[in-house]
Design a protein around this nucleic acid. Structure first.
Length: 948
RNA sequence: GCGAGAGUGGCCGAGUGGCCAAAGGCGGCGGGCUUAAGACCCGCUCCCGUAGGGGUACGUGGGUUCGAAUCCCACCUCUCGCACCA
């Protein structure tokens, strides 16, 4: 029979479905296992990377079931927020890129595109046709009764309860927050909605309010600490500028800046408009030093960047250095603007930061010279600027004129210094992007400040609780634990609502929707009751209901709702989450939010017990990308290779937390391996099971059984740690090598060998069942009469472990290797092989070394007490040196086993095998009986060899 | 820049103080099986070597140690995350 994975997979899939195999209900397991994975976001189809994400928890779930646990593995669908709405909008507008992704990447049939034109229609399509179908084909052991979407009415009631509770706990706060805002649509937008500037950074500029009489000219800078180094300012002469009342002050800023400030909740009223030229030649007063500086004309100034007026610090900015040189050089232009060139010529850079990296008081000059920059449009100028900025930021110290800040490193003092001047009114601030940002609608996107609600992840007491969760939970891999602690420390308040999108309305203000990363922090709790809450009318799902459900009857005043208490049993049974399996990119938000919310909302006993982190996937060495069509669809992969192969490849090519690479040729070779395994297994299944009395185990049989026990042990350890790669490597590939040796070494047709092979197969199928459930169930049922999932995870049978036999086989193996080496080096094909076993006195020396340890002196002392050895002098000395080196390589158990080995008997026993292997006659001769002087080379466990 | 992770043979990838010239796979070479191809099986695949040996090697440069791919320091390179995006 050949291996036909698809046929066999359909059969098991049907059996599981019909029997509701993975529907998990509370039973009497003291420590039921609950494993979850982030619910998919069906804003598009599923690719092979997703397949792995969901298979990892499935493997663990299957493993725990074999270990006898009740296991719950549920799934649901995340539809909150704007991505799906955005996708639908793009579809409705007929955007080519979107249509191509749907048609070509995800194979949506033309006549079904229409269904996708509503958000939930769109989501439903991908849920049913991609995610659900693929998950079933992959054999995920999901309890399908519990699925829901985050747009469901009852789920919303649950989230409502969550946010009302958080508010009562003082975890929410109202305030302003910068957002990307489309000035055309007058709406906040997401990265997804952008046509240009997806990578734009939002920068917070400090505005240094230079004075022009009572009027302020705010100069934008990212380096507020350079305020004492300003020598002049620049404005774009033909730019549009305005005089505006800003929060009661008169500011001169660019026209664009005035608009931006309006969006940033500043009270702005434009008084009059003028051209930048009007400012040129004016002198403005530095609010910190009181010095007057001249405003020069410069075309490089962009009115659409921050305030459109910039201050110049030529000593520390290569850009400014070059600009000042240029200004001084172009006297004619200065005169044009009515500036006395002599006045400009007098402008001297002011050094204000010490930095060792440059051997010049003016780092800017040094950098310009080092980079050989001669003109302002040299591309190296940007590099030089960046270099100076970096060096000064990390290693620069402020000079004496900074008073109390003098000597401080820029990095340590910048923010504080800016805050201080802001406080006292000399500075201000505004946001702007680092590059133009354009919405898909064509409108300009700006930074706007919007009133919003925040989750106060910056609260110290909340952070402390979250740290406690981290310290008590299991983190796989352990190296990720620091990242959680780090994220907790770093998180500030998180705006948790949006103006529009799918999901749950903010309970006390239905203009707002709770955003996706905020409505998905405790939903694992919802899984425990998702299928049963369907029977409860939504209007009964009050705060009281959930209080009683999650906190118990005493948590509500008066009579607790009866239905809630019924559901509470289910929640009690499954919670807490044993493992949350999720991507490493989610540590910095979702996973950490998950910890915060659990810490606040649930009692300690229900805090998460573990997280397992997943790596990222590549496709043929490159990033997957659905817009480029560079994806592999699970359905196609399964059709081509079979689900077990897909699973096996995904879990065996790297540990879950490591990045992996889907390579078609490697997947194909995985398929071949499974093929081979299956065919061999079928042969073993078909053999008659020998009668017990016919079974007489030989050394090699006991060796294989011993190896099998080791395999059970290491595989179990690996599975406990989510090391799916180690587990499958061990149970599959590693053990294949043992079998190869076994087949080479012995007649596998013997009854005992048949018995051993069936025993081995049965155990391996159980070890492999979590990873390749279809194949393992099929073969196990054929072999043992029941599907593997009705069997138990194997346990180590200590009676079958024999270090002695293992050590003996190693000796035979190294004997074969040595013979092969000699054959190769000499290029001969021997007719006869003579194996000389070492003389007894050598064995005595070995025993002494084994007992005494690796101290050569001590061994020699003991050995030389024996008359018979003393007379051998140097020979003994040499042997001791060698044996000490050998012995270091073994542990105590192996040494004891070695001492018990009778080499002569062992090699004689293997003579037949050696003879077959090399097609030669084999003799085993003790050194004492040998006439060949070669025999003297024999040392314990390294017999001398003569080939002829 | 900040935070985290990583750099091993032609490629992928194990290996965290001596069993390491370094598992396994892919690719390559030779052989077997076969009418043949595929599949499968066996062996080889850093350099030198007609006896199981020696040399060089694990990003680079130092150091610790009797001994380093493995520990320490510095540097270089790469990947991911850095916030309102799920």
């Amino acid at each position: 029979m050949t291996y036909e994975p698809r046929r066999l997979e359909r059969k098991w899939q049907e059996r599981w479905e019909d029997g509701g195999r993975y529907e998990a209900d509370p039973g009497d397991d003291e420590d039921a296992t609950f494993v979850t994975v982030p619910y998919p976001y069906p804003s598009g189809g599923m690719h092979i990377g997703h397949a792995r994400t969901y298979t990892v928890p499935d493997v663990y779930a299957r493993y725990r079931r074999l270990q006898g646990d009740d296991v719950l593995f549920p799934i649901a669908w995340h539809v909150t927020g704007t991505p799906i709405i955005g996708a639908v909008n793009r579809l409705q507008k007929g955007e080519e890129e979107q249509l191509s992704v749907l048609r070509d990447t995800y194979n949506v049939p033309e006549d079904e595109l229409e269904e996708l034109e509503t958000p939930m229609g769109f989501a439903r399509y991908f849920i049913e046709n991609h995610y659900k179908r693929n998950m079933k084909s992959l054999g995920l052991s999901i309890d399908w009764r519990r699925e829901f979407t985050t747009n469901d009415e009852r789920y919303s009631k649950f989230v409502t309860w969550q946010y009302e509770t958080l508010r009562e706990d003082d975890r929410l706060e109202k305030g302003f927050h910068p957002v990307k805002y489309c000035t055309e649509e007058e709406n906040p937008v997401t990265t997804h909605d952008l046509l240009e500037g997806e990578d734009a950074e939002r920068q917070e500029y400090t505005l240094v309010k230079f004075g022009l009489g009572d009027t302020k000219v705010p100069m934008a800078t990212l380096r507020p600490e350079t305020v004492r180094g300003v020598t002049n300012a620049y404005v774009k002469p033909d730019g549009r500028y305005v005089e505006a009342e800003v929060d009661g002050e008169t500011w001169l800023i660019s026209h664009e800046a005035a608009h931006k400030l309006t969006l940033q909740q500043r009270d702005v009223e434009i008084v009059e408009e003028f051209s930048g030229e009007a400012l040129v030649g004016e002198r403005v007063e530095n609010p910190v030093t009181g010095e007057d500086v001249l405003i020069l004309p410069a075309d490089f100034v962009d009115p659409d960047n921050a305030t459109g007026v910039v201050m110049s610090v030529p000593a520390h900015s290569p850009d400014d250095w070059m600009a000042l040189q240029a200004a001084k050089a172009d006297e004619e232009r200065l005169r044009e603007y009515g500036i006395d060139p002599a006045e400009v010529a007098e402008i001297e850079p002011k050094a204000i930061i010490d930095v060792e990296a440059y051997d010049d008081v003016f780092p800017a000059r040094a950098a310009v010279e080092e980079h050989g920059i001669t003109s302002a449009d040299d591309p190296a100028l940007e590099e030089a600027t960046q270099e100076v900025y970096n060096r000064e930021f990390h290693a620069g110290t402020l000079k004496d004129m900074y008073g109390e800040d003098a000597g401080a490193v820029v990095e340590d003092v910048r923010d504080e210094l800016a805050a201080r001047y802001r406080e006292s009114g000399q500075f201000d601030a505004m946001y702007d992007f680092s590059e133009p940002v354009v919405c898909r609608c064509g409108g300009t996107v700006e930074v706007a400040e919007q009133e919003t609600w925040f989750l106060t992840y910056n609260d110290e007491d909340w952070k402390a609780l979250a740290h406690e969760v981290v310290s008590e939970m299991d983190v796989v891999p352990e190296t990720s634990r620091d990242q959680f602690d780090h994220t907790i420390d770093w998180l500030e308040e998180w705006p948790c609502i949006r103006n529009y999108g799918l999901g749950t309305k903010l309970p006390w203000d239905d203009d707002f929707v709770i955003e996706p990363l905020s409505d998905s922090t405790i939903y694992m709790a919802y899984y425990t009751i998702a299928h049963r809450i369907e029977d409860v009318p939504p209007e009964e799902l009050t705060a009281e209901f959930f209080d009683a459900l999650f906190d118990g009857p005493e948590a509500v005043e008066g009579e607790a709702p009866e239905r809630a208490l019924e559901l509470r049993e289910e929640w009690d049974y499954w919670y807490p989450v044993d493992y949350r399996v999720s991507g490493n990119d989610l540590i910095s938000n979702h996973l950490t939010f998950f910890l915060f919310h659990h810490a606040d909302l649930f009692e300690r006993a229900n805090w998460p017990e573990g997280v397992a982190i997943m790596g990222m996937g590549l496709l043929e060495g490159e990033k997957m990308s659905s817009s480029k069509g560079h994806v592999v669809l699970p359905a196609e992969a399964i059709e081509e290779y079979g689900a077990d192969t897909v699973r096996f490849f995904l879990l065996n090519s790297a540990q879950p937390w490591q990045d992996y690479d889907w390579r078609a040729d490697e997947v194909a070779s995985t398929r071949k391996s499974l093929n081979r395994f299956y065919e061999r297994a079928e042969e073993v299944v078909d053999l008659d099971t020998p009668a017990r009395e016919d079974v007489e185990l030989r050394r090699i049989d006991r060796w294989l059984l011993s190896k099998l026990q080791r395999t059970v042990e290491t595989t179990t350890d690996a599975m406990d740690e989510f090391e799916t790669r180690s587990a499958s490597q061990e149970a599959f590939y590693r053990f294949e090598e043992d079998l190869r040796w076994y087949r080479k070494r012995t007649d596998t047709e013997r009854p005992a060998a048949t018995w051993v092979r069936q025993e081995v197969l049965c155990t391996r199928l159980r070890l492999l069942a979590p990873v390749v459930p279809f194949l393992a169930n099929e073969l196990h049922e054929a072999l043992a009469g029941v599907p593997v999932e009705d069997a138990a995870w194997p346990e180590v049978d200590h009676d079958l472990v024999s270090t002695r036999v293992e050590v003996e086989e190693e000796l035979i193996e190294s004997l074969v290797d040595d013979v092969r080496d000699i054959v190769e080096v000499t290029g001969t094909d021997p007719e006869s092989i003579t194996v000389y076993t070492p003389a007894d006195w050598k064995g005595t020396v070995f025993e002494t070394v084994a007992e005494t340890g690796t101290d050569v002196g001590a061994v020699m002392g003991k050995v030389m007490q024996k008359e018979s050895l003393r007379e051998r002098g140097d020979a003994v000395n040499d042997l001791v040196q060698d044996l000490v080196a050998d012995v270091r390589e073994y542990d105590d158990e192996e040494l004891a086993a070695l001492e018990a080995v009778d080499e002569r008997e062992l090699y004689a026993d293997a003579a037949g095998f050696l003879a077959r292997e090399f097609d030669a006659t084999v003799d085993v001769v003790p050194e004492a009986d040998a006439t060949d002087e070669k025999a003297e080379q024999a040392v314990p466990f390294r017999p001398a060899i003569r080939l002829e």
